[in-house]
Design a protein around this nucleic acid. Sequence first.
DNA 1: CGCGACGTTGATTTGCCTCAACGATTGTGG
DNA 2: CCACAATCGTTGAGGCAAATCAACGTCGCG
Lengths: 192, 192
Amino acid sequence: MHPIIANVSKHIRLSTEEQAYFLAMLQAKSLKKKQILLREGEICKSSAFVISGCLRAYTIDHNGFEHILQFAPKDWWIADMYSLITQQPATLSIDAVETTEILLLPRTAQEQLFVEVPAFERFFRIITEKALVTARRRVLDTLSLTAQQRYENFCKQYPTLIYTLPQKQIASFIGVTPEFLSKMRKELLRSK
Amino acid sequence: MHPIIANVSKHIRLSTEEQAYFLAMLQAKSLKKKQILLREGEICKSSAFVISGCLRAYTIDHNGFEHILQFAPKDWWIADMYSLITQQPATLSIDAVETTEILLLPRTAQEQLFVEVPAFERFFRIITEKALVTARRRVLDTLSLTAQQRYENFCKQYPTLIYTLPQKQIASFIGVTPEFLSKMRKELLRSK
DNA sequence: CGCGACGTTGATTTGCCTCAACGATTGTGG
DNA sequence: CCACAATCGTTGAGGCAAATCAACGTCGCG
């Protein structure tokens, strides 16, 4: 089965015609490492589904530091949701952590899809609910956990990513400097 | 117009029959200040819509400190989304900041609603998308802003709440101790 | 090979926390 | 309606987690 149909089928059932209709809307794209899919300030026109590789969404603050909001490995959806729904300039940038294959679903096509095949309205409601749970969990974690606990959580949550990702990016995701992450890891190794 | 119909009508159109059908599902409830709607560990069975007053969702960490995830003033929806969709024990508690009138929409009724009136699927998709944008914005703010900037943001975002809410709860929401918030406010007053 | 990004380490600084004490406000039972 | 307790906000002294800054070794890549 096509990987994106497998992904959608986790939550809704589609007829063969509906699957074909959906697949016809998608546009395949290949990104090289560090290639940018969306740049802060542009209007986000599509959601992306990751077939292989990994994307990341991040901002750069006024001191020039990157803050990573989300990683999207294989089988995840990613977009600047704010820009996508308001059609205002994006506050996030999205680029490829490594060579990545994606499928793009343009927002206009998606809106048409909601009308033609209401099951997709359900599908996106469900995955948005899950993304919301994750995002809120993360807010609570940054409020209540130490940097070390956040790092340990990260390792549990993304066990595959820790090997491919530069340490710098893990630091930026959990909200510490690369120097401090390095010191934490040293401590962790010594004590285990 | 009924306030909850006004709220729903911001995003979808309903016939008179659909409105009646929806309203019949709702259960009114009144909460006194500090009264608990959902306790951590219970199963969350309903979403709540706030007619008047204000609710809050929070956790208590292993050191006994409260961390406030969300305030829900008039015209907002609130629930422990994780518990609601998985029917696992809640990780959040929800209680009333002040005397509050709410309408409860049981999850079972909501699921029936999605089938009977698909427009509601759309409605909840849209408000979940907006909640997701807010939650992710907050993740980025805690990663990139100082406590003082987060406080100033809070004042802009909830200009009405700052007067009714105990300072302690504002501190807990933005992620600082009450003592430190007090010192920040002193600084802000001095410099303006 | 040589350059630039990355990870490490140490010295120093700082933003925010902890703890403790105190006055002001709120709420509550007699 | 008062007395008392509880909670809240403030202030200060001291402490700690994490940031900053700087120097250095290493590795991948053009």
